[in-house]
Simulated scan of single mutants.
Amino acid sequence: MRRRIGRELLTLRESSGLTIEEAGAKIGRSDSTISRIENGKRDVQLIELKGLLEAYDAPAEMRELLLNLVTASPEEAWWTNFDLPPNLDTYVGLEAEAAMLRVYAQGSVHSLLRTEDYARAVLRGGNPSAPAGEIETLLKFHMQRQQVLTRESGPLELVTVLDEATLWRQVGGAQCQRDQLNHLIQQAEQVPNITLHVLPYSKGAHPSLNGAFTILDFPDPTEPSVVYVDSPGGNLYLQKAKDTRRFDQSHSTLRGMALDEADSVAFMKNVLKEIK
């Protein structure tokens, strides 16, 4: 399958008149990465495929074929049963391919760690006029996303730095927030592939005061990481080395400033006692 996809992409690139170097520049990848994809030596990420298809101005039929081939695995393509916005479809495809997520959560708890009631409250808060059926469909999608943490073919490793604000904000009310905190404590104490660090207010200024982000790392160490930033102005996928290095350094700094795992659990238990 990998070799077939590579051959098709090679044909498309040559038809477009782009060199390997030009194709790589279009999607923020090196010429060696494009060469390895075309030679069938490396899987193409969904975000890379979409970028190359756009750069090559690929015919609709070929776009559909290659996208179907890349998302052919039943385990990784379950989300195609949902009518998702294109940006969300791209993200969940990357998340399914990833081996590790390094997260900084600022405004709310990360989607993979939310309880059902908390997730419903977040969706309703962000879409106050949406029909109830739409909210429930999105809720089902987000709950199913969490299966990456327990999948048989290598559970996703999740390393999250939680800003203290995520612990105090009563999303869905006090009881909903208490349930969410209990869930976080349980995940931190019982799930080996989940690491939680709390960043207290007392730590002061830090490199990511402007917002949350997610770094997606992939099983093949030669595959560059992708940084995802969700903002009111749009969703960003950063792939250039200088950008990924910057966020890698930020996450390392945040993790260094945050409480260790045991102290983070103790901190969350203290917050839980204070929520009335």
Rank of each mutant, 00 (worst) to 15 (best):
Q239V: 14
E75Q: 08
S30W: 13
L149E: 06
R3I: 00
I5Q: 11
W168P: 02
L272K: 04
R42E: 01
M268N: 09
N81Q: 09
G211Q: 02
A205G: 08
E274G: 06
V198M: 00
E75D: 05
Y56I: 11
G17A: 14
P155E: 03
D243Q: 02
G107H: 10
A241E: 08
L162C: 03
H110M: 01
I5P: 11
H110P: 01
I135C: 11
T33G: 03
R178P: 07
A55T: 01
L209Y: 04
G234P: 02
T253G: 15
L10M: 04
Q106C: 02
T160G: 05
H251D: 01
G154C: 15
T214E: 12
D243M: 01
Y228G: 08
I47M: 09
C176M: 03
P232M: 08
G204F: 12
A205T: 00
L88K: 02
T160W: 06
A25G: 04
N81L: 13
H206Q: 10
Y56P: 14
I194H: 11
Q45L: 07
E21A: 06
A262T: 12
T214I: 09
T19K: 12
T195L: 05
I34F: 06
D117E: 07
Y237W: 13
S30A: 11
I20N: 13
E134C: 13
E157W: 13
L10W: 05
S32P: 07
T222K: 14
R255G: 13
V44A: 03
Q175D: 09
P155W: 06
E116P: 05
P232I: 14
G204S: 10
D217I: 03
G6I: 00
G24R: 00
T137D: 10
E95R: 09
I37G: 15
L138Q: 12
T253K: 12
Q45T: 00
K273F: 02
T160M: 10
Q177N: 13
I185S: 01
S250D: 07
T90A: 02
E48K: 10
G24H: 11
Q180F: 12
E8P: 07
A98L: 04
D263N: 12
Q147S: 14
P224E: 04
P85L: 05
M268G: 14
S202V: 04
L46Y: 13
A72L: 09
E76D: 03
L69G: 10
A132E: 04
